[in-house]
Amino acid sequence: MTESPLARIALSTGISLDVCLAGPRDGEPILFLHGFPESHRTWRNQIEDLSRDHFVIAPDQRGYARSDKPEGVEQYKTNIIVADALALMDALEIKHFTLVGHDWGGAAAWAAALLHPFRVKRLVILNAPHPLIFQRSLIEDRAQREASQYVRFFRSPEAEAGILAMGLEAFLEKVLLGNADPAMLPVEERRAYLDEWKEPGALTAMLNWYRATSLEVPETDEEARLPVWTHAPFPKLRMPTLVIWGLKDVALLPIQLERLTDVVADLRIVTSPTAGHFIPWEEPGTVTAAIRNFLADSGG
């Protein structure tokens, strides 16, 4: 990836983010939101390709890398993360845009599309479950509940100490390389992530994304009922939506693709039987081609 200098952009939400800006300013805008425990770098291959003819915006989200890290779990609630994304586009004077999200960035993207459907022109989701389908599966599907027990650890007060005792290099091996093809994460990218995680307050800030969510993750054998909100009518997304999924994801199982047509009116799904959770860089060609095809089909 050809490194683009990061712009420091102050937001109306009271924080500043480092943001990768690439491509022609008059090009069709695409906002990329990364997940845990990464940064804008997860999109390095897509940025390089799509910035040839699109205006690409890829922030290091709050709590990550060298972007601001406000203290307190409440600072990482989903509505605040969504507000950052909209404030960033406001700062760039962009009204409508294609929104792409992976992992926690995908969770924020789902929420942004639900809360601001007239600003999100198109939605692209990579290995990030729809909130209603995910919550239902955590209660009703034993395999998904078992696969999500790591969330309980990341939420715990002992998580930072446990990760530091393990060592950041071992954490990288377990979380990134253990869930993807290690050959697809070059040494320089590994070093970059380790450097970002060593930023003061970064580890706690990243974990606070897990602690701030209202998602209920019961213990494997715990008796649990669906939260009340899952029984209420849920809005159906109307903008063109593409879901890209690595089927070897051991944390987010293929059940997350079931019943998506109940919550998305205009849906396309692209799956890879050989990619895992970190599909943006594990199979960059698959992802970039899928996004390009989707943009072409939907007028972008």
Results as ranks from 00 to 15, higher is better:
V175A: 08
L194R: 06
F154R: 03
A183Y: 10
A212N: 05
V175C: 07
A165H: 14
W209P: 01
A205N: 09
R145E: 09
I139Q: 04
F171S: 01
I133L: 08
V217G: 08
P157M: 00
R211G: 03
R136F: 05
A192M: 11
D195G: 14
A161M: 13
G167H: 04
F171E: 04
N179D: 07
E199G: 10
E169H: 10
E160R: 09
V175W: 06
K198P: 03
Y150F: 07
A180P: 07
L172Y: 10
T213S: 13
P182Y: 02
E140M: 13
E188S: 04
S156P: 03
T204S: 14
E189I: 14
Q149G: 04
S214Y: 14
P218V: 00
T213R: 15
A170M: 10
A212Y: 02
S148A: 15
L215P: 13
Y193N: 08
S214T: 13
R136P: 10
E188N: 13
A202R: 01
A143H: 12
N179I: 12
R155A: 00
E188C: 13
P200S: 06
L138G: 05
S137E: 07
G162N: 05
S148P: 11
L207R: 06
A180T: 06
E188W: 09
E189G: 12
V217D: 04
R191N: 13
A180D: 05
L207G: 01
P200H: 02
K174V: 10
E173F: 03
E160F: 14
Y193Q: 03
A205V: 01
A205R: 00
P200F: 03
P218E: 00
F171Y: 07
A212W: 06
L177M: 04
R191Y: 10
E189R: 12
A159R: 01
A202S: 08
A143L: 02
L203F: 02
A205D: 03
Y150A: 02
S214W: 12
S214K: 15
I133W: 04
G162A: 11
A161P: 11
F153V: 04
G167Y: 03
M184H: 12
A165P: 15
R155T: 00
E173S: 04
E216Y: 13
L168E: 02
L176F: 01
M166R: 06
Q144F: 08
E216M: 13
D181R: 01
R155Q: 05
E196C: 10
A147S: 09
L138A: 02
Y150K: 09
R191P: 10
D141H: 12
T204N: 04
E169S: 08
L176Q: 08
L176A: 02
L185E: 01
E146A: 14
G178K: 10
M184L: 12
T204H: 13
P182W: 02
R191K: 15
I139H: 06
E160L: 05
A165Y: 14
F134M: 15
F171G: 00
E146K: 12
Q135I: 05
W209K: 06
P200T: 06
L215T: 15
G201Q: 05
A165Q: 15
A165C: 14
R142E: 07
A161Q: 12
E173W: 07
F154T: 01
L168D: 06
Y210V: 00
